[in-house]
Amino acid sequence: MLFQFCPHCTSAKITETKAYRIACNHCGFVYYHNVAAAVAVVLRYHDQVLFTVRQKDPDAGTLDLPGGFIDPGERAEAAACREIKEELGIILDPRKLKYVTTAANDYLYKTVHYKTLDIFFEYELEHPELGITAPDEIAALQWCHPPTMDLNTIGFISIRKVIGECYSI
């Protein structure tokens, strides 16, 4: 259960429905734990895809794609460009972002399961030399050839699914 007590009146008389609707049977307060939007960018250089190695949980030590949560009021394309600049220090031309697909994900953060909708974009790089500007989030960078990689090295289910379905694995 997401909450043990009502966030409005602190009553313990709450009911959770479908893991996202929480209702207080005492005061009538209803809370919907809605889906959060996130972006992931498949940075390509020829037949290689750039993966990051996660520095911390969830899924520390596994492969990930650069990206992150979309801020309130922010467009997905702007979030993708912002996240790449924050994590890798490069500026993307948003007109060159190619929409790939979306995928549902479950993001466990400090005992709370966040349901996310991950929006995937692809971007072709002109050169493969990149650095890390968010060492608190990224332990390393790794170029991979998707058709030959082990999908189990990827931490998040949504990324595993999209790489497997959209990049011929």
Results as ranks from 00 to 15, higher is better:
T62D: 10
M1W: 08
I22M: 04
E74N: 07
G89T: 05
L141S: 00
I132K: 05
V49D: 02
D118G: 07
E165F: 00
E86K: 14
A38D: 07
E16W: 00
C81M: 12
E77C: 13
P128R: 01
Q4M: 15
L92K: 00
C166V: 13
L92I: 00
L2E: 11
Q4T: 14
F69V: 08
Y167M: 04
L63G: 02
G61T: 04
R75F: 15
T116M: 07
A103E: 09
Y20D: 14
R44G: 08
T17W: 12
R21D: 09
G89I: 02
N25R: 12
Y114T: 05
L2A: 13
K96F: 06
K18F: 11
F121Y: 08
T17M: 13
D57H: 09
L125K: 02
T133S: 01
C166I: 13
F120R: 05
L50Q: 03
D93Q: 06
P128S: 03
I70Y: 02
C24L: 04
G68T: 01
Q48K: 14
I154G: 00
K18I: 11
Y31P: 09
A140C: 04
L117F: 09
I157K: 11
H8Q: 12
G67F: 00
E129S: 13
T111P: 06
D106K: 09
H26A: 11
G73F: 02
Q4H: 15
I70F: 02
L65Y: 07
T111F: 12
F51S: 04
D64C: 07
T10H: 13
A78P: 06
K96M: 06
C6Y: 03
G89L: 03
F5R: 14
I132C: 06
C166R: 14
T52R: 10
I22S: 00
Y114V: 05
A78D: 13
H127V: 11
Y123H: 03
V39Q: 01
V100K: 02
P128C: 08
Y123E: 01
C27T: 04
T111W: 09
H26S: 13
L88M: 01
A23W: 05
K56S: 15
D64G: 04
E16C: 06
V42I: 12
H33S: 13
I138M: 06
G28Y: 01
I157C: 12
Y20I: 14
C27G: 04
A78F: 08
G73M: 00
N34D: 15
F121Q: 01
P146H: 08
P72M: 06
A40L: 03
N152C: 11
R21M: 10
C27L: 01
E87N: 10
L92M: 02
C144D: 13
E87A: 08
N105R: 01
A80M: 05
T10Q: 15
T15S: 12
R95H: 11
E129F: 14
S168L: 15
C81Y: 07
V39L: 01
L92T: 05
T52D: 10
V100L: 03
R95Q: 15
D150H: 06
V162D: 01
R160M: 03
G61F: 02
H8E: 12
C27Y: 04
E137C: 09
